[in-house]
Nucleic acid binder design. Structure first.
Lengths: 196, 196
DNA sequence: TGTACATCAGTGAACGCGCGTTCACTGATGTAC
DNA sequence: TGTACATCAGTGAACGCGCGTTCACTGATGTAC
């Protein structure tokens, strides 16, 4: 037992679960001010701790960003699964659900979602990142599988769908397109089902 | 005549065309080190001028970035037109050409292309930016026009194509997909021609 | 149950960095006369 | 053709800022005895 007790009255020297608190602080900073609003010092301040404290928990700023990204992918996967499971039980509806979950996550965690694609800002060798990001891709690929055909193999259909939804998100985020004017479902191709 | 003479031997106090030189310096800095490598001071240094000099030509860093982005869109349009004009004279081939030009520009001017979508980093009210970016969109829209149909209006087909190619570029840039394994033409839908 | 001790997550001061911007200035240029 | 002058694109020093990181330290915690 090296963990501090879960709760205790009075000011304690040890924080309890600073690591998770810093990740949470980082996510809320990103939500409020975008990528530029996140720094080690601000995370520490928001977690109510001196600016040097994070060094005991993360390998520098990159380490903290790695944890934020890993948690981001975890949430991302959940968004996609939830939206899919609320959709009708046809391959087309399931895929559309996945895309809607993708879009919803990207809108609600805008800066986190952006950061998740900036591989030079965190440690891609981190096992937690690898696990959670692979899981996200797996969920997307699973929804694409029924649509592979003679002219489009599995990889191609995944690339098409992923590009389409990621581009849609990116353009909407930049204010280049208006999601209200052109909802995503109007541009998702009506794929044909594979005849095996 | 307020311009200095085009060439003159010996060290001159006035630069001649510092404005354009700073834009060029910025573009090459972006090419070499990405977005993080660009600063007013580095641009000035690369242009062989003191770090305070840019203030006489641009409204701060944002003003310089505005000029870089405007020039970026100019080049972007040219890439799309050139690739289109080298393609066969069918609507499908013309559209594919536009997309290939889009992709080529995004690859060769990676950081500039990224910057062009970050509207908070430059002045979107700049007339030159508005002119050049509108021209780029116009070229893309023109290539989409033949494919509008009963189920997909002009806006929808533009959004589909733009999202698809922008997402493809973004994912390739981030190392998420491999353009060699899945070239863009394999994921561009074979649109049907409108029957008028 | 009480005491000594090792651990280690915190503190806060200090460092050096590159940044954008401001400021008084200087000196080359083109023009008016 | 020559001179005085206004213009303005440059200089370089200085400012304050927030950043990540380092460092010696402190004091709360849990454990060994």
């Amino acid at each position: 037992m090296t963990k501090a007790p879960a709760a205790r009255t009075g000011k304690r020297h040890h924080h309890g679960n600073l690591k998770q608190a810093l990740v949470k602080a980082g996510i809320s900073l990103l939500a409020e001010g975008g990528l530029g609003a996140l720094s080690l010092r601000k995370c520490a301040a928001r977690a109510g701790v001196s600016h040097a404290a994070p060094a005991h928990h993360f390998k520098g700023l990159k380490g903290l960003l790695t944890a934020i990204v890993a948690q981001g992918f975890e949430t991302f996967t959940r968004y996609m699964i939830d939206a899919r499971d609320q959709s009708a039980d046809t391959p087309q509806a399931q895929l559309e659900g996945i895309c809607q979950g993708y879009i919803a996550f990207s809108r609600e965690y805008e800066a986190v979602a952006t950061l998740m694609f900036m591989k030079d800002r965190f440690y891609t060798s981190d096992p937690e990142f690898q696990r959670t990001s692979s899981a996200s891709y797996g969920v997307l690929a699973e929804a694409c599988a029924p649509f592979r055909s003679g002219t489009m193999n599995e990889k191609a259909i995944e690339t098409l769908v992923w590009s389409l939804v990621q581009g849609y998100v990116h353009l909407a985020r930049s204010g280049m397109i208006d999601p209200l004017e052109t909802p995503f479902e109007t541009i998702l191709p009506k794929f044909e089902l594979r005849e095996d």
